[in-house]
């Protein structure tokens, strides 16, 4: 059975190779190009991932955050009693001082990374569908 299938496979290959390709008419290319010339050139327009409005929103948010952080005190800490310096000291005996500003920076940086991943995922899905 397997040998028969192999032989039939080889036979079909030979037959299809013998059949070859059929030639289109001599004016085929000219006809297609005449039709194509009536169409708009399919130029790929560059679309930035973050639009102008997006950049302006990011800049505005950044300025608002900077203003709020430098001029107002929230009166409480986002991290509560949680202190990164003492945690490192307890767990790994590392004596490093991590300023609150640095911890806040890392926290907000992480938030932005997560948001960006979501945006990238959405963009990628859009492109692949």
């Amino acid at each position: 059975m397997e040998a028969e299938n192999k032989k039939l496979d080889q036979f079909t290959k030979e037959v299809m190779q013998d059949a070859g390709l059929q030639a289109s008419s001599t004016d085929f290319l000219a006809n297609v190009m005449a039709e194509v010339s009536k169409e708009k050139v399919p130029v790929k327009v560059y679309k930035p991932l973050i639009s102008k409005v997006g950049w302006l929103t990011i800049a505005a948010l950044f300025l608002i955050f900077a203003y709020v952080l430098t001029n107002f005190s929230l009166g409480f800490s986002i991290f509560g009693d949680w202190d990164l310096s003492s945690l490192l000291m307890e767990k790994y005996q590392l004596q490093v001082t991590i300023p609150s500003t640095y911890a806040y920076g890392c926290f907000f940086f992480l938030i932005f990374v997560v948001i960006q991943i979501k945006i990238f995922q959405k963009q990628l899905d859009k492109r692949l569908n």
């Binding site: 390709l21 059929q22 030639a23 289109s24 085929f28 290319l29 297609v32 190009m33």
Partner: peptide, 9 residues
């Protein structure tokens, strides 16, 4: 078009 016209046809 020249490259693929015969196969397409």
């Amino acid at each position: 078009v020249s490259k693929y016209k015969d196969m397409t046809f």
